[in-house]
Design a protein around this nucleic acid. Structure first.
Lengths: 116, 116
DNA sequence: CTGGCGTATTGACGTTCATCGATATAGTCG
DNA sequence: CGACTATATCGATGAACGTCAATACGCCAG
């Protein structure tokens, strides 16, 4: 990938006004669109959901492949996208990789969509 | 388009549990992803924002082209996507087309992302 | 050190998407 | 009716995306 940058949700949510208050500037629109694009895939939504539903909001990658019905490289790819977008964290424990929800990341995006 | 179906946000938000409570079923993931995909574009986010910031939460298409810096067909295309996704309504008044926010549409999506 | 397993990366392929230019449709005014 | 304007549709093009098979990497057991 050309930009291994941590774009992360926190950039979007750091300062900014909700979508429906005033016309948002182009740059903020790009950031928010990037976060939403990371979420806008059925497999990735299910991965987030599965991680969230796991004990301690943490799940081993090995347990996430089979339920999706997709190949292991594909799941690894989706997990990478979600991690780089700031929705998941990755922690390696021995051979296994554990993914956990970033607290408040989803809420931050949701807050930008809501009017109040 | 092959599917002129009204998929609309209401389908997603009708019944369903938030993303982080339990593993969401595949079908619901597809619907939510479709709604998010409609939002996951900088131009479309700005269009929504511009409509929301307008008087009466309604804006003429003629006023939405220039601020985006894009061509008129492109803007028309984005407005169609947002309308078919259930975020905007279109009302023709004479030669002009006015677009308005669907009340609660954005909130419905936001509510699915949030944990509480 | 060697073999095996879990995970990530690479390269390729087909699909979807955003954008444009050209054109078609529809409504208004003279 | 005929010219003009606003909007939508069509066709094409280049980029981005999701998926897979093959492969590389990293860790552990023996």
């Amino acid at each position: 990938m050309s930009t291994p940058t941590m774009l992360s949700v926190t950039d979007v949510t750091a300062c900014c006004a909700p979508l429906t208050r005033e016309t948002i500037p182009v740059e903020q629109a790009i950031d928010l669109a990037r976060a939403l694009k990371a979420l806008a895939d059925p497999t990735r939504l299910r991965l987030i959901s599965m991680v969230a539903a796991s004990a301690g909001e943490e799940a081993c990658a090995c347990d996430l492949v089979e339920p999706t019905g997709l190949g292991q490289p594909t799941v690894s790819h989706h997990l990478k996208i979600l991690t780089e977008a700031g929705f998941l964290t990755r922690s390696q424990r021995g051979t296994w990789a554990y993914f956990a929800l970033v607290p408040g990341a989803l809420d931050s995006v949701a807050r930008l969509l809501v009017s109040a």
